[in-house]
Write a protein that binds this DNA or RNA. Structure first.
Length: 598
RNA sequence: GGUCCCGUAGUUCAAUGGAUAGAAUAGAAGUUUCCUAAACUUUAGAUGCAAGUUCGAUUCUUGCCGGGAUCACCA
């Protein structure tokens, strides 16, 4: 916040008057002082020796002395360890800082930037239910959206639904052949699960056919191509493209089931979208764009009629955009979708694609193609690439049945949080509804925090048995801190204390836990900016944890209502209120709710 | 093979080129007449290997070793 800026300006002036040197404020970096030393901010002075013509230690001392003399009692002391200049800040400065923050009801919301961005996430296929990987994807995309909003941007949350293609036809075919008219209503199954089951069924039957063919002497590779089921599925896809009523009707019906199922899962996850895009609507547009690109000579046609883009100048390969028969590929669709989105939202300055890191190459190519087509905005596009979620048994593989289903996992989380909460006897006086809300808040909070606290770029390990904890660096730990503060604020209200700032200046001295925590509070908006720049909710997660930990230490060491000094008592209530606000806002950025009681 | 990513306590995660590499968990030992012990305190434990750049390297460069992804007329 402002304090850091003030210090930097003073340091810049110190260089001017001490060493007659122009050191830009933007070149000065202050870091928080390590706990074992006195002070709050540290200036590393090793590199200034050339400017000051002194040893790092003497440089640091000279600057420290200057700051104490010239900062009007902001810097009240300093110490130098080797070349590290640790600056001690007056308690009054921290108190003022808290006052400023507590007077900002929307602290953590930066001013409107005028920038519009689109964040794509989830983007499932409609032949399978959502799984653990989708959870990381959705939580990430949703959280990044919130973080960008907090930065003042206008954010559109979207997803592209892969609702067409051979995979859907497989489910449809299996359902036709083996389904006996089963519907979500008749079987009580969730729609996405039901369709997913038929996708599996297809695969099983298909394998049987292959095995049979192989037994009859057909080579395996050929068998995979000529198995009757596969041929039928391909025929179905053609019929779909021609919008043959039977096939098209069935497609609509089964996709409808899937969407109902997905909606239920998204609601449970607590994520939503501003607009949905369907591949069945955009894939044709992609074709047109490719044709246009051909006219502009951005692409070229091979003898067989297939269309390619040459990316060898960019160090990549040639990439197919349209097959010889004129049908589109994955890339074609993504080109169409990207352009459609900019038509829908002309003021958009950036698209962010939340997609797993196995598609890094794909997006590299996509952005290059868009650039070749002359779209200036292509430069700003960003692939929010995240690592895979591994299980202790290794990679999730649907064929081997090692996929962790999203609904099942969330259910399990609720069960665990329910059991745990009951065991602790924490739900006295809760209505049934309140209690089940709490279980959800905690279970989902634990899960989201677990998936978001890790740097998105990194692969992570998820052990369903052990990963989700309620102690330590977890969602519930932070939620618990919030609930504790809420209890204090409730009690303060009962006792008639209003957390006002009228007498902040009379607070006097601060406890070290208070000072450290106020420092953290002052860093909140910086952290939001950093998280936005890195597209990393993990930064917010880490921050929220540090803040909660800091407050818990304060809570343990310092009493509020037993404090005899009324001014201090008031100050601590106001202080607690600000911490609660920042925790709530921070968790909000992660898409995690916080309970008033737990 | 080309390209890219990753190797940090037993385990899961941190660390704009900065100080004695932080946490959590599991382990050991403590703290409830006091605002919620889902908390707090103490303790033990780690940078794959080898060079280089630097006052200073987990971070940057190179090589090696190990793990993963990708290089589809699949999506």
């Amino acid at each position: 916040m402002k304090l850091e800026q003030t210090l930097k300006q003073q340091i810049s002036q110190a260089f001017q008057s001490l060493f007659d040197y122009e050191l830009g404020v933007e070149k000065i970096s202050l870091q928080p002082t390590r706990k074992e030393f006195a002070g709050a901010y540290t200036l590393v002075c090793f590199s200034y020796g050339k400017i000051s013509k002194k040893s790092p230690e003497d440089t640091a001392k000279t600057i420290g002395e200057y700051l104490v003399q010239n900062t009007n009692k902001v810097v009240v002391g300093y110490n130098v360890v080797k070349g590290f200049l640790n600056l001690e800040i007056a308690d009054g400065v921290w108190i003022d800082l808290l006052k400023i923050i507590s007077n900002q009801p929307d602290y953590g919301q930066l001013p409107v930037s005028g920038k519009e961005v689109m964040v794509e996430y989830s983007s499932p296929n409609t032949n399978k239910p959502l799984h653990l990987g989708h959870l990381r994807n959705n939580f990430l995309g949703y959280s990044v959206s919130n973080i960008l909003k907090a930065c003042g941007h206008k954010v559109y949350k979207v997803q592209i639904i892969n609702d067409r293609g051979i995979h859907i036809c497989k489910s449809m075919l299996a359902w036709q052949k083996f389904g006996n008219g089963e519907t979500p209503e008749s079987s009580g199954k969730k729609g996405d699960k039901l369709v997913g089951d038929y996708y599996v069924k297809f695969d099983q039957e298909y394998k049987k056919e292959i095995a049979q063919l192989v037994e009859q002497g057909t080579p395996k590779e050929k068998a995979e191509k000529v198995a009757p089921l596969m041929l039928e599925a391909q025929e179905m896809l053609l019929k779909w493209e021609q919008k043959e009523p039977n096939v098209y009707g069935l497609w609509k019906r089964m996709n409808g089931w899937v969407y109902d199922g997905f909606d239920a899962t998204y609601t449970q996850m607590g994520v939503d979208f501003d607009k949905l895009y369907y591949e069945s609507n955009t894939y044709l547009l992609g074709k047109d764009i490719v044709e246009q690109g051909l006219d502009k000579e951005a692409f070229f046609k091979k003898e067989d009629g297939s269309v390619w883009v040459d990316l060898t100048d960019e160090g990549l390969d040639e990439k197919l955009l349209l097959r010889a028969d004129g049908t589109s590929v994955y890339m074609t669709q993504d080109i169409g979708t990207a352009i459609e989105r900019f038509k829908d939202y002309p003021k958009l300055s950036q698209q962010i694609y939340t997609v797993g890191n196995e598609q890094e190459y794909h997006f590299k190519v996509l952005f290059l193609i868009l650039k070749k087509l002359g779209y200036a905005w292509a430069e700003e596009n960003y692939h929010l690439s995240y690592g895979m979620v591994d299980l202790p048994s290794g990679k999730m593989k649907s064929r081997e049945g090692t996929v962790v289903d999203a609904d099942d996992l969330m259910k399990e989380m609720f069960d665990t949080s329910t059991a745990h909460t009951k065991e602790l006897g924490k739900i006295e006086g809760f209505s049934e509804q309140e209690a089940s809300d709490l279980y959800e808040t905690l279970g989902l909070g634990a899960l989201k925090y677990f998936l978001l606290k890790v740097d998105p770029k990194k692969r992570m390990l998820f052990d369903p048995q052990e990963s989700i904890q309620f102690h330590g660096n977890t969602g519930p730990f932070i939620q618990y801190t919030y609930a504790r503060i809420s209890a204090i604020l409730r009690k303060a209200k009962e006792l008639g204390y209003e957390p006002t700032d009228t007498h902040f200046e009379k607070t006097g001295t601060l406890e070290s836990t208070e000072q450290e925590t106020i420092y953290l509070l002052s860093e909140f908006e910086n952290k939001i900016k950093e998280a936005a720049k890195e597209y990393s909710p993990a930064i917010i997660a880490q921050y929220a944890y540090d803040l909660a930990k800091g407050y818990n230490r304060f809570y343990q060491e310092v009493s509020i209502f037993n404090e005899e000094d009324e001014y201090k008592l008031h100050f601590r209530i106001a202080f607690s209120k600000v911490v609660a606000h920042v925790i709530k806002k921070g968790m909000d950025l992660l898409g995690i709710r916080v309970p008033e009681r737990m």
